[in-house]
Design a protein around this nucleic acid. Sequence first.
DNA 1: CGGTATAGTCGTACGCGTACGATTTAGGAT
DNA 2: ATCCTAAATCGTACGCGTACGACTATACCG
Lengths: 230, 230
Amino acid sequence: MPRPAYSIEKREEIRSEILAAAHQLFAEGGPEAVSIRRVAERIDSSPMRIYHYFRNKDAILRNIWAHIFDDVFDRIEPLLGDVPSPSKRLRIFCREWVQYWVAHPQEYRIVYLTEDDAPTEQMSAEETYDSLRRFALLVEIFDEGVSIGEFGAGDTQLRVEALTTAVTGIAHSLVMIPKYPWPAPEHLVEQVVDPFLRGLSGAAPPGPLTELRTDACAPIRSAAAPAHLR
Amino acid sequence: MPRPAYSIEKREEIRSEILAAAHQLFAEGGPEAVSIRRVAERIDSSPMRIYHYFRNKDAILRNIWAHIFDDVFDRIEPLLGDVPSPSKRLRIFCREWVQYWVAHPQEYRIVYLTEDDAPTEQMSAEETYDSLRRFALLVEIFDEGVSIGEFGAGDTQLRVEALTTAVTGIAHSLVMIPKYPWPAPEHLVEQVVDPFLRGLSGAAPPGPLTELRTDACAPIRSAAAPAHLR
DNA sequence: CGGTATAGTCGTACGCGTACGATTTAGGAT
DNA sequence: ATCCTAAATCGTACGCGTACGACTATACCG
């Protein structure tokens, strides 16, 4: 009875058109060149039409960063191909990971400045958090390391998350605080990653670990403001 | 011959008035409540007047985060007072550091989302990067660790920077990607920090380190865009 | 006293993201 | 052919940061 919705294909086609324009703008001028109004102009649309296909600007940026993630992994994976030792592969990964973001600060910004609203809703299958699935690469490396005895047993997921958040933190600081006289990225990475990996080696669980991950992180809510701020 | 500039005191007074309003707004409604126009309204000023006292909004936010930094350190330092072992103190610091940001996501956002434009210029002495000076606390801890033989010798500055960027990276992910089912913060921190500290212990330099920091990080410039983005 | 140069202030305007409501459009049911 | 309803589109408007230029006030020089 009502006007029928566009077919999935048609809808996806429009979404692609929007994304293509956004990608192009990003390639031309970085994150700040991507604006809804400019995208609309590129595709001869009204700005508001876009909001029928994406919940907000962030949803569009998120799609861009999915591609960026693919790019990083596509570059790094070949470097790991013939390296036998899992821990060496992890080392290379971390070094290259940071190096990539340092060399592509704009890409870093777009990835890590988009907030995490409500991904599930208006997204096509391809663009959900499954860009993060490429981190499975690390899971595999860790698992291999355990299976060949290079690492002791442990919570692989936790290890991956700890390692990636830590090295990404290094990249974050280097990119976002460029004026600060940082040491060379490799040295920072090495400081963190080498001990981390050495901590995993040998069968001995590396020290006074408390029990490992059993439950997820409590939902994050804002607590009281600091005293200075009344 | 020209109209004389305001005295430093007068100027600083106006700056404080602006900052007070901004702090108040932040306390009331978080980062997004702080707008130049609202600050102006609070102090019965025109929005543009503010730009004579701060180069842009970020400069104002940066002042707020200086206070936040003080708050974090003020909370953490007492927890370290009577702990004898430097490595234990570092552990506590890292745990509490992440915990603080997780408990105060708004504060995290304001600190780590402000970019690093050109701090030197229009800032009063108090508000430059010297908020970062409180990290000297960590320098001291490391140095003590070395002097009492708990840590091997090494580049303290590098160690501090590596440790803080890494743990801040953990906080960053937890705060900025709250929907993801993260493990408990302590577990992530422990994964990174424990091996890191163990890596420093003993006189033996922990493994195949390449030469340490000699020069600063090369200036960061954007490289070619990823292939996908044309 | 009248210029003059500059610190300080303000009005206007641009582009931004997007909330909201009005309008148009397409098809099945009548 | 007409109506109904929701999909799709669009116009308008708000608050935002801030560039730019105009205007005002104030001290000294002549």
